[in-house]
Computed example of a mutant assay.
Amino acid sequence: MTSGEFLSLSVELTLGMVIISVALAFFRLFRGPSLPDRVVALDMMTVAIVAFCGAAAVLYEQVAFLDVGLVLALVGFLATAALARYAERRRLRKEEEKEQP
């Protein structure tokens, strides 16, 4: 087996494992049970899709996939931060409602 064949096989296996991880994260996103679980699942899906873009860039020898992965990582970070802030405010609002008679 040559190094090119080994690299191709490794990247194809990587793409398959990333697809499986996205499917599992989607299941957790759909199933829940709580908002923090869904936020973590969404963040995991973002990270897995960024990994998919990196592996696709190696497999197809296209640097454009790296740009897509970089933009997706930045958007995913902002989305996760916004959802975490929303979850925290929601928790504080519920605690305030419990304290009031």
Rank of each mutant, 00 (worst) to 15 (best):
Val71Lys: 11
Thr2Ser: 15
Thr14Glu: 14
Ser34Tyr: 03
Ala81Cys: 14
Glu88Val: 03
Leu29Glu: 01
Ser10Thr: 08
Ala55His: 05
Arg85His: 03
Ala82Thr: 12
Ile20Tyr: 06
Leu42Tyr: 01
Leu66His: 04
Leu9Trp: 15
Thr2Ala: 13
Thr46Tyr: 04
Val75Thr: 13
Thr80His: 08
Phe30Gly: 00
Glu12Val: 14
Glu61His: 06
Phe26Gly: 00
Ala57Tyr: 05
Arg31Met: 04
Gly54Ala: 11
Arg89Ser: 04
Val71Thr: 12
Ala87Arg: 02
Ser21Val: 08
Val47Lys: 06
Thr14Phe: 11
Pro101Glu: 12
Ser3Leu: 15
Gln100Asn: 04
Leu24Lys: 04
Glu97Lys: 14
Leu35Trp: 01
Ala87Gly: 01
Gly32Lys: 05
Ala57Lys: 03
Phe77Leu: 09
Arg28Lys: 10
Leu24Trp: 07
Phe30Glu: 02
Ala25Asp: 02
Met1Trp: 13
Met44Leu: 12
Phe27Asn: 02
Met45Thr: 08
Leu83Lys: 00
Leu35Thr: 03
Pro33Thr: 03
Gly16Glu: 07
Ala48Tyr: 12
Ala55Phe: 06
Met17Val: 05
Glu61Ile: 05
Pro101Leu: 13
Ala87Asp: 09
Tyr60Lys: 09
Leu59Ile: 03
Ser8Cys: 07
Arg91Asn: 09
Val22Glu: 11
Cys53Leu: 11
Arg31Gln: 09
Thr80Arg: 07
Ser10Gln: 11
Cys53Ile: 10
Pro33Lys: 03
Ala56Ser: 07
Leu72Val: 13
Gly16Lys: 10
Gly4Phe: 15
Ala56Thr: 13
Arg85Lys: 08
Leu74Tyr: 09
Leu78Glu: 10
Phe52Gln: 03
Ser34Thr: 10
Lys94His: 14
Tyr86Gln: 12
Arg28Met: 05
Ala87Tyr: 01
Val50Pro: 01
Val47Gly: 00
Ser3Lys: 14
Ile19Asn: 15
Val40Asp: 00
Glu99Thr: 07
Phe6Met: 11
Ala23Asn: 05
Leu72Phe: 11
Glu12Ile: 08
Ala73Lys: 05
Val39Phe: 00
Leu59Ser: 13
Lys98Phe: 14
Ile20His: 03
Leu9Gly: 13
Val47Asn: 04
Val39Thr: 06
Gly4Glu: 15
Gly76Met: 03
Pro36Trp: 00
Ala84Phe: 13
Phe65Val: 07
Val47Phe: 09
Glu99Tyr: 13
Glu88Gln: 11
Lys98Cys: 08
Leu7Glu: 10
Arg90Glu: 14
Val68Phe: 12
Glu12Pro: 01
Val18Tyr: 01
Arg91Ala: 15
Thr2Lys: 05
Gly76Ile: 07
Arg31Cys: 00
Gly32Val: 01
Ile49Asp: 01
Phe26Asp: 00
Val22Tyr: 04
Glu95Trp: 14
Ser8Val: 05
Arg91Leu: 13
Met45Ala: 13
Ala48Pro: 00
Gly32Phe: 06
Leu66Ser: 02
Leu92Met: 15
Glu96Asn: 14
Phe26Arg: 04
Leu9Asn: 09
Asp37Glu: 15
Arg85Gln: 06
Phe27Glu: 12
Leu24Ser: 01
Ala25Glu: 07
Phe52Ser: 02
Ala23Arg: 07
Arg93Leu: 12
Ala25Tyr: 04
Leu29His: 01
Glu88Thr: 09
Ala56Ile: 12
Leu15Glu: 08
